[in-house]
Design a protein around this nucleic acid. Structure first.
Lengths: 296, 296
DNA sequence: TCCTTAAATTGTCCTGGACAAAACTGCAAT
DNA sequence: ATTGCAGTTTTGTCCAGGACAATTTAAGGA
C-alpha cells in the first residue's frame, strides 16, 4: 500500500541538502515536489530522494543546480553515465598507474590485500618516502576519483580508515623524543579530515619533533588552552580541499589572537594551496616544506 | 577591539542546538540574545555560546530547558557545581580509584606516561580484559568528568586520540580471520565518536570475527551499499551518549529497509541504553553481550 | 585574448505562526 | 504509598515567503 516516505529531516540527512535548500528548490524549480501529511509537512517519496541524490552527485562534479533541475530523468541519467567515460586518459590513470594499482584491492573490497601491499611498500621505501611519495599522492588520487564518482563513498571511507591505521602504526614505531620541538597537531571544528594531520605527524616525528596529537575538530579556544597546557612551540592545523576556503583566513587570525605569545601557527593541506599569505602564519603546501621548516 | 562572534551556523555546530531551537529560545525565553550584523543576521558573543554549552550540558543531565533558561549565570553555575559534589563517592572515583589514577598523566598533559601505563596494563590483563575492564570504564569515567566539567575539552581529546591509537595497534596484532563472521563497523553521519566502534572491533576480532572497519560517519545508503559489496553478515553501529536519542529509532528502521535481506543490524553504545526494543534489531549495552552474541 | 563590469544564480538567514510529541501535573483507585 | 489515567504545559520541528550577499556566468570594451 503506502510507499516509503521521508520527512524533510531524513532527506537532509540522506542527501546532504539542507532543509532550506530543499524548500527553496521546490519554490524556485518545482522540484522536488513532495506530498504532504495531514499536518502539511513534506513527505518525500523514495524516487524523489534518489533523484536528489543523483543531482547532488552531479553537482559535486561541477554541474549547476539550475541546469540539473531543469532536466528530466532521462537526461540526468545520460549526463551521469557520460561523465564516467568522457575523459579517457584521466580514468586510465586510476587503474594504470603504479599508484593506482595499489587501489585495486580497495575496489575489490579486500582490506587485507591492501594493507599487505602498503606494508610491503612501506618496508621498501622507508617511512619518509612512503608518506611523501605513496600516501600523499595516493590520497590525492582517491580524492579525485571520489570527486568524479569513480569510487564509491564507502570505498573512500575504507581507504581512509585503513591508511590511518597504517600511519598510526608506523608512527608508534618511532622512538619518543621528549626533547624535540613540541608541535601540537589538530584541526578546526568544521574540518573532520585527519589523514593529512597524520601524514604531517609522521613526517615531523621522523625529523625528531615531539608531536602532540589531539585528533581533529578542536574548538579554537581549546586549541589555545591546549597549546598553553602542553607548552607547545608550534600549533599545526590541517585543511582539506573540501574545507570552505573563505573561512580559513578568519579562523587562523582568530586563533592567533587566542594563542599564547611566541607560539608559531602552521597551516597546511590542500585547502590552503590558493590562499594569500597572512603575516605571522606559516603556510605549507607540501609535506617536504613542512619538514624543512622544522629542520631550519 | 571587536570580541569574537559566531554566526548561527557556528553556534549550531558548537552547541548541538539547531538553528530553529536557537531562534525559538530567543523568542520564548529571551536568551540567547545575539547582536546583529549589518544584514540583520545573528552574531553570538562567545559568552553566550559558552552559556548555551553549559545549558546543553545540564539538559543532558536531565534538566529542562524552560527552567535553565529562567536562571541567571550564578544559579546556573551553582547547579552545575552542585552536580559535581552532590554525589561524593562519585567524584571521589575520578582521582582515587585505580582507574582514575590512569588519567593522572592526561591531566598532567604527559602523553608518553599515559601510553606506557596503558600498555603495561594491556600486557598484564590481556587484550579482552583490557578493553572490557579498563578502556570501557575509563572512557565512561572521562565522559562523566567531561560532562561535569572536571576535565578540559582538550584533555578529553588527547585521551580519545591516544586510546584510539592503543586500540588500533592492539587490533593490528591480531591474526586476520578471513573465514570469520563478516561484520561491518561504522557510525551514522551525525555520530562522530569512533572510540566505541574500536572497542567493539577489538572484542569481536578477538572472538574470531572478520571486522570491516569503515570509520565513522557513513551515510545510510552507503552503509547499505558497503554491506552488499563486502557481503557483510552483520552491520554494527555505535551511538555515543551525546547522540540525540530520539533520532536513533528512525535511523535504525530506515537503515534496515535499505540493507540487503539477511543482514543483521546491531546497535550498541551508551546512546541506546534507554531505548525501547525494535523488532529485528539487536541492541547491546555492554561489550560482553556483543561478544556473546557473536559466539552464539 | 584578456580584463572589467553587469546580470543571473544560489545558499543561507530572517520573521512569526502552527502543531504534535513528549513531559509533567493532579487526581482517583488499587 | 504506588499505580494508572486524563488534562495541561513544554518543547522541538516544520511552514511560508521574503531578503540579501556571495559566487558564477555573461557581456562589453581594450
Amino acid at each position: 500500500m503506502n510507499a516509503i516516505h521521508y520527512n524533510i529531516s531524513a532527506v537532509e540527512r540522506d542527501t546532504g541538502l539542507s532543509k532550506d535548500v530543499l524548500r527553496v528548490w521546490e519554490r524556485r524549480y518545482g522540484f522536488p515536489q513532495p506530498e504532504r501529511d495531514s499536518n502539511g509537512d513534506r513527505l518525500y517519496p523514495a524516487a524523489q530522494v534518489d533523484r536528489l541524490r543523483l543531482i547532488r552527485r552531479l553537482m559535486d562534479q561541477g554541474h549547476r543546480p539550475g541546469r540539473l533541475l531543469a532536466l528530466n530523468d532521462e537526461e540526468l541519467a545520460t549526463l551521469h553515465s557520460s561523465h564516467k567515460t568522457d575523459k579517457p586518459e584521466e580514468s586510465a590513470t586510476i587503474a594504470d598507474t603504479e599508484l593506482g594499482e595499489l587501489l585495486e584491492p580497495i575496489r575489490r573490497h579486500h582490506a587485507a590485500d591492501f594493507l599487505m601491499a602498503m606494508q610491503q611498500r612501506l618496508a621498501r621505501q622507508g617511512m619518509l618516502c612512503f608518506v611523501e611519495d605513496t600516501i600523499a599522492p595516493l590520497t590525492e588520487l582517491v580524492g579525485m576519483a571520489w570527486e568524479s564518482g569513480k569510487i564509491e563513498v564507502f570505498e573512500e571511507h575504507l581507504y581512509t580508515e585503513l591508511t590511518k591505521r597504517l600511519l598510526r602504526q608506523a608512527i608508534a614505531t618511532l622512538p619518543a623524543r621528549p626533547q624535540g620541538r613540541r608541535i601540537l597537531l589538530t584541526t578546526v571544528p568544521e574540518e573532520r579530515h585527519s589523514l593529512g594531520l597524520l601524514m604531517v605527524e609522521a613526517v615531523l616525528s621522523i625529523e625528531g619533533a615531539h608531536c602532540i596529537p589531539l585528533g581533529p575538530q578542536m574548538p579554537l579556544i581549546e586549541i589555545a588552552r591546549a597549546a598553553a597546557a602542553h607548552q607547545a612551540e608550534v600549533v599545526a592545523l590541517s585543511f582539506s580541499s573540501a574545507f570552505p576556503q573563505r573561512q580559513i583566513a578568519g579562523l587562523l587570525q582568530q586563533l592567533e589572537t587566542l594563542l599564547p605569545a611566541g607560539v608559531e601557527l602552521w597551516a597546511g593541506g590542500a585547502g590552503i594551496a590558493k590562499l594569500p599569505e597572512i603575516p605571522g602564519i606559516h603556510f605549507f603546501t607540501t609535506l617536504a616544506t613542512a619538514r624543512q621548516a622544522l629542520v631550519a
